[in-house]
Every structure is written in C-alpha cells, then in structure tokens.
Amino acid sequence: GQVNVNNTTYTFPTPKLAKEFAQKAAKKYNLTVHVSGNTVTVK
C-alpha cells in the first residue's frame, strides 16, 4: 500500500500497515485520511 503525506509517498508491504501509518499521520498533523483504490492520501 502507498501513503501520500505532504507530497511525500511512503510504500508499505501490506495495505494494513499503510492504513495504520496513515491514521497515525492524520492524527499527528490533524489531517484527514482519503482512500482511493490502493493509495491513501493524508491531507
């Protein structure tokens, strides 16, 4: 799974890890998680 945070893309071996990372990043920066297919964007 891929996660985009502040124009930086992070790649994870599983969608589960990507989702967990996205949720932590969203909480940390007070942003929202947007899911589109296999790509998760935090903005």
Rank of each mutant, 00 (worst) to 15 (best):
H34Y: 13
K16T: 08
A22T: 01
S36H: 11
V3P: 11
N38A: 07
A18S: 01
T11N: 06
A22Q: 03
T11V: 14
K16I: 07
T39P: 00
N7S: 15
V40R: 00
Y10Q: 02
T32D: 10
F12K: 00
Q23I: 12
S36W: 07
V40F: 03
T32Y: 05
V33T: 04
F21Q: 01
N7G: 14
A22Y: 02
K27Q: 10
T14P: 00
F21A: 03
V3G: 13
K43F: 15
F21K: 01
A26G: 05
H34V: 15
L31A: 08
T14M: 02
T41Q: 06
N4T: 13
N30T: 04
T14D: 06
H34E: 14
V5N: 11
Y29W: 11
K19H: 11
A25G: 02
A25D: 01
K16N: 06
L31Q: 05
A25H: 06
N6F: 15
V35P: 01
Y10D: 01
K24H: 11
T39K: 09
N4E: 10
P15N: 11
T14E: 03
K43T: 15
A22M: 02
T11S: 06
H34G: 04
K19M: 14
Q23N: 09
P15R: 06
K27H: 07
A26S: 09
T9M: 09
G37T: 02
V33D: 00
T41H: 05
V3R: 11
A26L: 09
N38Q: 04
Q2L: 11
E20N: 07
E20L: 14
T39S: 06
K24S: 06
P15I: 12
N7R: 11
K19P: 00
K27S: 08
A22I: 02
V3W: 05
K16S: 09
P13H: 05
K28W: 14
V3H: 13
T9N: 05
K16P: 02
H34M: 13
K28L: 14
V33W: 03
H34T: 15
F12D: 01
Q23R: 14
L17R: 06
N30W: 14
T32M: 08
T41Y: 08
T8R: 15
V5H: 13
T32Q: 10
T32K: 08
K28R: 10
T8P: 07
K16H: 09
H34I: 15
K24W: 15
Q2N: 12
H34D: 07
T41R: 04
E20T: 05
